[in-house]
């Protein structure tokens, strides 16, 4: 199945599916794999073009009051909390 890597857009995965949590809930130092990206079409596209696609491994660098800072594909990205809450990751470590 082509979308086993994850999905962008569409409805969010039902609660309790896998161990998916929003990016905003991953503590600093935590790592995971992006499984779902939600939000407006333009926003999804922007995030994906910055290199964060379903299936991308991410490490959270900072996650406090401001934007969530993650490291993925060799670059560090800052993502506003509103958008980050619509990114679901499968925690791996």
């Amino acid at each position: 199945m082509r979308w086993r890597r994850g999905r962008a857009g569409g409805p969010p995965p039902p609660p309790g599916s896998g161990n998916l949590i929003p990016l905003t809930a991953v503590p600093p130092g935590g790592a995971g794999v992006v499984r779902w990206i939600g939000g407006g079409r333009g926003q999804i596209r922007r995030i994906m073009e910055m290199g964060l696609t379903p299936g991308s491994p991410v490490t959270v660098v900072a996650n406090s009051a401001g934007p969530v800072v993650v490291s993925s594909r060799g670059v560090t990205l800052a993502i506003g909390r509103g958008l980050a809450s619509k990114i679901m990751v499968e925690v791996t470590g």
Binding site: Q43, R46, I47, M50, P67, V69, V75, T76, L77, A78, I79, G80, G82, L83
Partner: peptide
């Protein structure tokens, strides 16, 4: 507006 930006090293 939301933020998505690269943080250069």
């Amino acid at each position: 507006p939301e933020l998505v930006m690269e943080i250069p090293p």
